[in-house]
Write a protein that binds this DNA or RNA. Structure first.
Lengths: 153, 153
DNA sequence: GTCTATTTGACAACATATTGTCATTTATGG
DNA sequence: CCATAAATGACAATATGTTGTCAAATAGAC
């Protein structure tokens, strides 16, 4: 026989499971949005980060919550495809800055445009207040899960 | 210049991004919960599905929202480690049924027990009503995103 | 300035998951 | 029954991401 889960624990577990399932569908939707531009969610994320501001691979990793190795792999592919280039970084000899090329910019714009249509349609289905409250709860959970270290064995 | 995102679209996009970020942290937490038992989130999921009811690899894939190939890979590892076994399926010659061994059952119990402690602590941090409303919104989004096919290029 | 710790990119090994293909088995329509 | 369609497991290729390690570059302590 197993836990010991309180009603509050049940509520949080149900919330967590639904969030994980939704994330899977959002990931699929993101890939579909990026696909016509010949991209994927991962490439889109890196492109968007570099577009927000020129940054090193390691910085993008921190911004995206990924390891720098993972970002490096994607960034090298983006460079090979001519969507970004590695610009000299006056502040660091090794850590070159990712910068979008014109091709990268127009590719990102194409994805953003499709994403806008998608988000607008879905946003209309919700009461704005509910969406904002849910977002708040998700962010609260985000901070709590970050802080809450899992109990050691 | 890019979209065209409405306030409703902005609200949904913010919600989606926060959900994706939380899912990343939940995944990390899940791995940490499973690790002392020598498992991972992926193996835990498959164990839990097979524990809920003996089922084929393809059935588990549908239940977990994964491809049957992905489940197959994990299930073969679980079998090799003696946590599940493939039982004959009277209804289907090829599609054997995954069944937990005693080792599999106790491993799953260990993970569930740790998960209960974790969920109980986190659940206490929330107003139960907020958590339930957020879960509802997430589930609504789940269904909407499933239905909403991404616009073709 | 010098020594040390940290950061960074490069490289490799591995875990996870998807897509695609194939042959076998099961289900279905006639 | 039989022919065709669908489901299933097996196998391979690829995409994504983590962990671990190394050397070079930078930052910080003194």
């Amino acid at each position: 026989m197993s836990p010991d889960r309180t009603p509050a624990g049940d509520a949080f577990a149900a919330f967590a499971i639904s969030v994980l399932r939704l994330a899977g569908h959002l990931q699929t939707a993101g890939d579909a949005l990026a696909k016509p531009a010949g991209q994927t969610s991962a490439r889109w994320q890196v492109l968007a980060a570099a577009d927000h501001a020129p940054m090193s691979v390691a910085e993008a990793g921190r911004a995206l919550g990924m390891t720098r190795q993972g970002v490096q792999r994607v960034a090298d592919l983006l460079e090979k495809d001519g969507l970004i280039l590695y610009a000299e970084n006056p502040a660091h000899q090794r850590a070159k800055l990712m910068v979008l090329t014109d091709a990268g910019k127009s590719t990102l714009e194409a994805i953003k445009s499709r994403q806008a249509v998608w988000a607008n349609v879905l946003g209309e289905l919700f009461d704005k207040k509910h969406l904002q409250q849910a977002t708040e709860t998700v962010i609260t959970a985000l901070q709590a899960v970050e802080k809450q270290s899992v109990p050691d064995d």
